[in-house]
Design a binder for these strands. Structure first.
Length: 640
DNA sequence: ACGATCACG
DNA sequence: ACGTACGTGATCGTG
């Protein structure tokens, strides 16, 4: 048995690392002391817990002063036994560790997770901001520095330094560092001690602030999204392989064109702006840091393309700008989407994206590895990669204009509430009030953008840039909007005045969530309340769906849309039932949903055909660089 | 490590 | 006095 002592908050802590089979008896003596709540953490070879190569190395269990660092290869049964005992655990970012032991030890989520508290979740309820934004931060180290011990070690980044000193990278270090390395064992042992210490002050603050029920709800929700993460979603691998090659070929083709026109690297904003300026283009927009802005909007305009990528008249298209936007889009889709789907899939071709049930300042969820909330939506090609299990079809349920409905409710905007209650299309209703009975499709588009602009706190210039509408008509629409819906402006004003007079820069949402507001961006308060409340309605719907026994049909939460799958014969019934469970009345305003049977892939919701031709596409590759032409090619050039 | 960019609701 | 577009995650280039 190795024994290491360490000091946390001026108290001696013991870390035990059993090295012989006989040592484990003392671990059970420790468990027999009857701690009702213990810290829990794991160390594995990486974050990719569903890949075939991933391995679990250590499981750590500890009280406030004593930790046991257990090798999985030696003490598997003891670890399982301990985790299954009737006791609460606390972990920092519980979904990860719970999924790890579910996958590697067979200690199922259903058994363990309802007994695990998460210090990250609790910290988020107290202050959702990271350190840069002025909050306490949500990393274990950040929170311990505030609530446990300012000198608490940053176990993760300190270990990274150890890896580097041993000539390992951050990613390889977790797999390669000797399992009995003293620093590794020490830091592994400190994590459950820190989590256990952290939970006491956090609980106290949560109770003081009346957030106890919300904390219970968020832990429940987190368990459900973790079930969704474990289930995962099936990938059409042959399709995705082909898509990747097609996209890479497209990227190469447009990189070649850019190269011929004298641009080396389409991904370098510096090179792109220099080239365009040299061609005589006038680039007036600047980034926050003052660099010449050459984002997609700027490039599309130079390429004489509208926001739907259709060629427009009015100017000669700049073919460099055209090649750059096309190459960048193809490259992004190939790398961030197709390639990452293939890299991150499990041996059964399923993807298990990280679902963070409470991430944004407004508590909105996020999804990472890969970012499935951000797949291209105007085209079906990327979403076509996601298919239901055999015998099933994709289903989806959307909230209908939920943020506008929440806004109408919280702002007590009765005209808007009436428009919603009468079943009118809200943006058409606005367009009619603003532009008259003969409003056009473009007018509706402006009205819609102004509606979002109001929710986000935007001004005429931004809305104009977004929609392409000229500033005077946007201004006119904004004025008419305020006249039509006076409650919105009044509500926003009220929130800001209350913060200014009270000197307390936060808003409290209708369900009692406290959201800090930056003092120099008070206008964001309305958006925070609206976005956060819409998220909470969505979260409650997820809990209702699971309580009704339909949770197993769900695959992904996407802010205001639930994606799922169901057996072909039942799909219509299932999606209708889920749709009903998503509906509610919030402060007198109806929250409605649109259930749909999507089809044989997620892409079917965006126009993908049910069947695609099969076959392999060959990778073409880049042409040679200019200056390396052979004679035949030079002959062709001389003819041009 | 950080800025710029691009993908979404 | 006025006006401010909100929230994410991933990749690439750059220093």
């Amino acid at each position: 048995m190795d024994h290491i002592t360490h000091t946390v908050a001026d108290e001696r802590c013991d870390i035990y690392f059993p090295t012989h089979d006989d040592d484990i008896g003392q671990f059970f003596d420790f468990l027999a002391q009857g701690h009702a709540l213990l810290g829990f953490d794991t160390e594995g070879t990486g974050l990719d817990i569903y890949t075939a190569k991933h391995q679990l190395r250590l499981v750590q269990i500890g009280s406030a002063t004593e930790a046991w660092v257990l090798r999985v290869d030696m003490f598997r049964d003891a670890i399982c036994k301990a985790l299954r005992q009737d006791r609460q655990y606390v972990a920092h970012n519980a979904p990860f560790d719970c999924l790890v032991v579910d996958r590697h030890l067979g200690v199922k989520l259903e058994d363990l997770m309802p007994r695990v508290m998460d210090t990250r979740l609790m910290g988020h309820l107290i202050d959702p901001r990271n350190k840069l934004e002025g909050g306490q931060g949500l990393r274990l180290k950040d929170m311990c520095a505030v609530y446990v011990d300012p000198a608490a070690p940053d176990t993760e980044s300190d270990l990274t330094a150890v890896f580097n000193s041993m000539r390992m990278t951050k990613s390889s270090g977790w797999a390669r560092i000797p399992i009995n390395h003293r620093t590794y064992v020490t830091y592994a042992g400190l994590d459950p001690i820190l989590a256990r210490r952290l939970v006491t002050p956090l609980s106290k603050i949560i109770m003081q602030q009346g957030l106890g029920n919300l904390s219970t709800f968020e832990h429940e929700l987190q368990y459900l999204t973790t079930l969704m993460q474990r289930k995962g979603i099936l990938i059409d691998v042959p399709y995705t392989e082909r898509l990747k090659v097609e996209l890479l070929n497209e990227q190469d083709q447009f990189c070649d064109i850019a190269m011929d026109l004298g641009l080396d690297n389409v991904n370098s904003p510096q090179q792109v702006s220099a080239k365009l300026i040299a061609m005589g283009e006038e680039l007036t927009e600047r980034t926050k840091e003052g660099a010449v802005k050459v984002d997609r909007a700027v490039l599309l305009q130079l390429a004489a393309l509208n926001q739907q990528w259709e060629r427009i008249s009015g100017r000669e298209p700049n073919m460099v700008a055209d090649a750059v936007v096309r190459a960048k889009r193809a490259g992004k889709w190939a790398e961030t989407y197709a390639q990452s789907f293939l890299d991150l899939r499990d041996p059964f071709d399923r993807l298990h994206p990280g679902i963070n049930s409470m991430q944004a300042r407004t508590a909105r969820m996020s999804i990472n590895s890969p970012p499935l909330q951000q797949l291209p939506a105007r085209e079906w090609k990327v979403r076509r990669s996601f298919i239901p299990d055999p015998g099933q079809v994709m289903i989806a349920v959307d909230f209908q204009a939920v943020e506008m409905r929440v806004l109408a409710a919280v702002a007590e905007e009765y005209i808007m509430q009436q428009a919603i209650a009468s079943g009118l299309d809200l943006h058409s209703f606005t367009a009619e009030r603003v532009f008259g009975a003969n409003f056009t499709k473009e007018h509706r588009q402006i009205a819609k953008a102004v509606g979002f602009g109001k929710v986000y706190g935007g001004g005429a210039e931004t809305i104009s840039r977004q929609t392409g509408a000229d500033i005077p008509s946007v201004k006119q629409a904004l004025v008419a909007y305020d006249r039509t819906f006076p409650g919105i402006r009044r509500y926003s004003y009220k929130l800001i005045e209350r913060m200014k007079s009270g000197g307390l820069f936060e808003v409290v949402t209708p369900i009692g969530r406290r959201l800090p507001v930056d003092e120099d961006r008070l206008y964001a308060a309305t958006n925070y309340v609206v976005q956060s409340t819409a998220r909470d309605l969505f979260a409650k719907a997820i809990v209702r769906i699971f309580k009704a026994g339909l949770g197993d049909y769900l695959l992904l939460p996407i802010h205001d849309e639930l994606l799922g799958q169901a057996p072909v014969a039942d799909a219509q019934d299932v999606v209708t039932e889920i749709g009903k469970l998503m509906e509610s009345t919030f402060m007198g305003v109806k929250i409605q949903s649109s259930p749909k049977v999507v089809g044989s892939s997620w892409g079917a919701a965006y126009g993908a055909p049910e069947d695609l031709p099969t076959g392999v596409v060959e990778r073409v590759g880049r042409r040679k660089k200019p200056g390396t032409w052979d004679q035949e090619e030079l002959d062709v050039f001389s003819l041009l």
